[in-house]
Design a protein around this nucleic acid. Structure first.
Lengths: 189, 189
DNA sequence: GTCTATATATGGATAGAC
DNA sequence: GTCTATCCATATATAGAC
């Protein structure tokens, strides 16, 4: 990077997403007003509109990066999921990926899925999530296999809730969630 | 019941809850307006206010019955959950209870938990849910035990989502969900 | 019990100055 | 890039007639 550049300069554009993520998660997307976001950021509503065209665009901006990474997870570099070991590896990667994005994002999606579904990015999310589910269920899955895949993902996501209510460290919770997720995936075997 | 009473007379009061449950689930609580509820019911907004004091009261009305039953589930008649068999039985009862209320209610709670938390009934729900979690985790639970309890409940609730996306019958899905839930509860044992 | 009409607040979004 | 001021739509809720 060139000398003389102020590295501490954090784009307002990114700070908006960060503040919005917190508020959307705590209060809900529909309930959170742009005024609240602006206030917490120390600017006015009008300033937000310079960076994002609509409120929906802010939500889309939050989900964009997460979704692209998730797409990559089930993309070409994905492990061979025809065998159980490959599916276990995919679940491990998913757990790591979720950890990287933090619990807020998991809760944001889960607790605002109705509103997200109405956005263009919501359709993408649905598609990618379904693919993840399909590969985790393995080839020619029974209803039981599909339920196990769904539950394995749910196990990983328990962290987003337990992190707030339990006294254990987030790291321990993630470890436990992955263990249970893998147990589920293996099923009766 | 006394003769001459019109048994077909379904109280508007109850029909409001039924219509509201559908709309709140499909569109989200915050996004659904009282006008939409009134329209689908064939009355005006003002009529709703004769039966319920506020919009929040409608939501509370929906949750009331569900919550009382859930309370009973973990109340005095609950099985002895100090042994695994008792906890398995409790999970079976929970699964049956959820089935009785239908998938909409599960989704309503899950996807509007942020807004529900702000209501008085939300605090009750939290408390009861926590008790359910505690008894399912068994005595002196490890982090792993707690995670298994959480995941077992999540397994049961997968039906609310899969019923919309999978092609299997709801009955088959509930059967599978219970099987997986029990597997999770048993854990490594 | 349900209606019409309205009070009142707040939301998202835009125009135009600086 | 951020501000002040404002437009406009829609929301919850109430008053009072029928």
């Amino acid at each position: 990077m060139a000398p003389g550049v102020d590295h501490r300069r954090t784009d307002t554009r990114d700070r908006i997403l960060s503040v919005a993520l917190g508020l959307f998660t705590r209060q809900g997307y529909a309930t959170t007003s742009l005024r609240e976001i602006a206030d917490e950021l120390g600017v006015t509503k009008a300033a937000l509109y310079f960076h994002y065209k609509t409120k929906d665009d802010i939500m889309a901006g939050i989900l964009r990066g997460y979704l692209d990474g998730l797409d990559a997870l089930v993309g070409d570099d994905a492990p061979d999921t025809s065998a159980l070991a490959g599916r276990e590896e995919l679940l491990r990667r998913f757990a790591g990926y979720q950890a990287g994005w933090g619990t807020n994002l998991t809760r944001l999606i889960r607790e605002n899925i109705t509103e997200i579904s109405n956005l263009p990015v919501g359709e993408e999310l649905r598609t990618t999530h379904r693919r993840l589910l399909d590969v985790l269920a393995g080839p020619d899955p029974t209803i039981l296999d599909k339920t196990r895949a769904r539950t394995a993902l749910a196990a990983i996501q328990t962290v987003a809730v337990s992190a707030e209510h339990d006294d254990a460290s987030e790291d321990e919770l993630r470890q436990a969630a992955l263990t249970v997720g893998l147990e589920v995936l293996r099923g009766g075997r």
